[in-house]
Design a protein around this nucleic acid. Structure first.
Length: 580
RNA sequence: GCGCCCGUAGCUCAGUCGGAUAGAGCAGCUGCCUUCUAAGCAGCGGGUCGCAGGUUCGAGUCCUGCCGGGCGCGCCA
């Protein structure tokens, strides 16, 4: 089973070949959703140049060649040459009935599965995550889940920052204050505070900054004391990350962590190979590559610094090693970097150097899936009043607290016990935050607004959750498990038709989101589905339907809608409460 | 200065390979709870798609210029 748009496209393509010859069998039939019918084909308007005939005439002839009566009402030529395609109600009903028996809900798996590396989250170790990490974590996790479901071999890759200059800084500061000092204790209780203290010393004290840089070189060279402290710092951060990922219900595990330190041993070879190839050359004491086409402030070539003048490596060295590892050892066909858009230039240059070195095969795609900044309602990058970035833990708690506050205001909350209320608030609060991050195009900035995201109206997590809760309520009252609703689907009402047709588009929505690495496309689809369901819900009584076949059909539509909504929200990583 | 991204309703955002009269939600106004969860639904008003050219049968979408905003541009990541 495929989605209607695709099936129609094939029929129109066959019609093209039948009407105008085999030469046109490869022509894109330009089938698109339509406001004037279910779908329309615009292909006749694109052919006058080749056929030397007016578009309406082409459309009329194409219509005569279409073998489509099993799917559609007779196609109509309209306007300058559009062909309007309206699906038959019985065809829609039959497809929906088939979907009921399909575990994958009409979605097919990739015919040619790829190995896809999804790099995401990637927080700096020893520092609390903030709202920016939240978005790359959530969007990246959704991309990984969607790719997985689409049938690709997904390798999640949490490229944590556990090896850079900041570690020299942290280790030096820890040695300065003493490993058993009260201040060292803040590493457990308030890691940001410790980080900021180290940072302040780094910025204000040149002697400390120099020691820190030397410490990085020591660490990267395998110095035992440095390594011991580093391991301790990393372990503390792991505990923190586990707590965050668990609460966020993000699918990353320890096995997905391949931090910068993982590539340390490869760095000398990477650099040496670039040097041998003549791609990396000395410049101002450092070792740099100058990929063609990149110029800086004064028009001079822009460097990728591969080794710093103090002998230390940096994130460019690591990223280059990472590319080679992903191609050679992981065998990846596609690498998706879910990272903030500020790093766009960095990735373009690093990819260019790797291509120059011949490390990335032609057919392998390295993409930067850019994540836009999260802004406050004032339009500026989200920060607390004191100017700090907002801690993730506090942000999530606020979401849950707000959800709980709304629940408490509703009389309906009286029917739930305390534990249930708490779990509903957790799912609604976390779900609202996650959905808000997912529902706008990932590469654009978006305004973080509590009141909007936690609203139960509009394209929000709670609205979709609510739709599932209403469906479950119907089945609870019916005393029937959703899996027992087997149809068949019959279509009489407009609301039934609209809902059923939308259900058939699930696979297309998943594929669209996967191909573009754009989870928000799936959000748009799910919101449209939930909206059509609530219309159906208002207009078409299910349990009190006029007769048994109608009731069975409507129960089947409810069951399908529930499965698609739950499946879709699961692909997004948005939790769903049973009741709310 | 150069490069990348963006500019769509009062606000927040969709808009697929260029297709008919540019769509949602919020906010505003009008209706709807003896009926499966009203955390909802139905309806109304609201637009020179930043501006100006160009390509095209057809441009929010592609090209050029300008205006406005964001980000980046040598040893942080």
């Amino acid at each position: 089973m495929a989605n209607p748009q695709e099936l129609l496209a094939r029929r129109v393509q066959d019609g093209l070949a039948a009407a105008f010859g085999e030469a046109f069998s490869g022509t894109d039939p330009l089938v698109r959703p339509s406001q004037h019918a279910d779908f329309q084909s615009n292909v006749a308007l694109s052919l006058p140049g080749q056929l030397h005939r007016p578009p309406r005439e082409i459309a009329a002839e194409l219509v005569r060649s279409l073998q489509i009566t099993d799917m559609c009402l007779p196609p109509e030529v309209s306007g300058p040459g559009f062909i309007n395609l309206t699906l038959r109600d019985d065809w829609i009903a039959r497809q929906a009935s088939e979907m009921l028996g399909d575990d994958r809900l009409g979605t097919y798996r990739a015919a040619d599965p790829q190995t896809v590396v999804v790099e995401y989250s990637s927080p700096n170790i020893a520092k609390e995550m903030h709202v920016g990490h939240l978005r790359t974590t959530i969007v990246g996790d959704a991309i990984a889940r969607i790719m997985d479901f689409a049938g690709h071999h997904v390798i999640r890759d949490n490229h944590v920052g556990d090896w850079g200059t900041q570690f020299g800084m942290l280790i030096e500061h820890l040695l300065d204050v003493g490993e058993d000092s009260p201040e060292a204790g803040t590493l457990r209780t308030d890691p940001n505070r410790f980080y900021q203290a180290a940072r302040a010393a780094f910025d204000s004290d040149p002697e400390f900054a120099e020691r820190s840089r030397q410490r990085v070189v020591l660490l990267q060279g395998g110095d035992p004391v440095s390594l011991r402290i580093w391991h301790e710092l990393v372990a503390l951060s792991m505990d923190y990350l586990h707590r965050m990922y668990s609460r966020l219900q993000v699918s990353l595990t320890d096995e997905d962590i391949r931090g910068e330190s993982f590539y340390n041993a490869m760095l000398p070879d990477v650099v040496a190979d670039l040097e041998t190839a003549g791609i990396a050359v000395p410049s101002e004491g450092a070792l740099c590559a100058f990929p063609p086409g990149f110029t800086g402030r004064d028009g001079s070539p822009l460097p990728v610094i591969i080794r710093k003048s103090d002998g230390g490596y940096n994130y460019s060295s690591t990223d280059l090693a990472t590319i080679r590892y992903r191609v050679d050892d992981l065998g990846c066909d596609r690498a998706i970097y879910v990272v903030g858009s500020a790093q766009a230039l960095h990735f373009r240059m690093v990819f260019a150097v790797a291509r120059q070195a011949g490390w990335i095969p032609e057919t392998t795609s390295f993409e930067h899936a850019q994540i836009g900044n999260v802004l406050g309602t004032d339009g500026k990058i989200l920060r607390t009043r004191s100017g700090d970035s907002i801690k993730l833990s506090a942000l999530l708690q606020e979401g849950v607290d707000r959800a709980r506050g709304i629940l408490d205001e509703l009389e309906a909350s009286a029917q739930f016990d305390e534990a249930t209320l708490a779990s509903i608030a957790e799912a609604v609060g976390i779900g609202a935050v996650k959905y808000a991050d997912l529902s706008t195009a990932r590469d654009s900035e978006y305004v973080f607004d509590w009141d909007r995201m936690i609203s139960f109206k509009g394209n929000t997590g709670p609205y979709l959750q609510y739709a599932t809760a209403r469906i479950r309520s119907i089945f609870r009252r019916a005393g029937l498990a959703p899996e027992r609703a087997t149809g068949p689907v019959v279509i009489a009402e407009e609301a039934e038709r609209g809902l059923a047709l939308k259900l058939l588009g699930f696979g297309a929505a998943v594929w669209s989101a996967a191909d573009a690495a754009q989870p928000h496309r799936l959000c748009v689809y799910l919101f449209e589905l939930a909206s059509l369901f609530t219309t159906f819900y208002e207009l078409c009584p299910v349990l009190k339907a006029e007769d048994e076949p109608v009731r069975a059909s409507r129960l089947a539509l409810c069951a399908l809608t529930l499965r698609v909504l739950l499946g879709g929200l699961d692909l997004l990583g948005v939790p769903v409460p049973e009741r709310m």
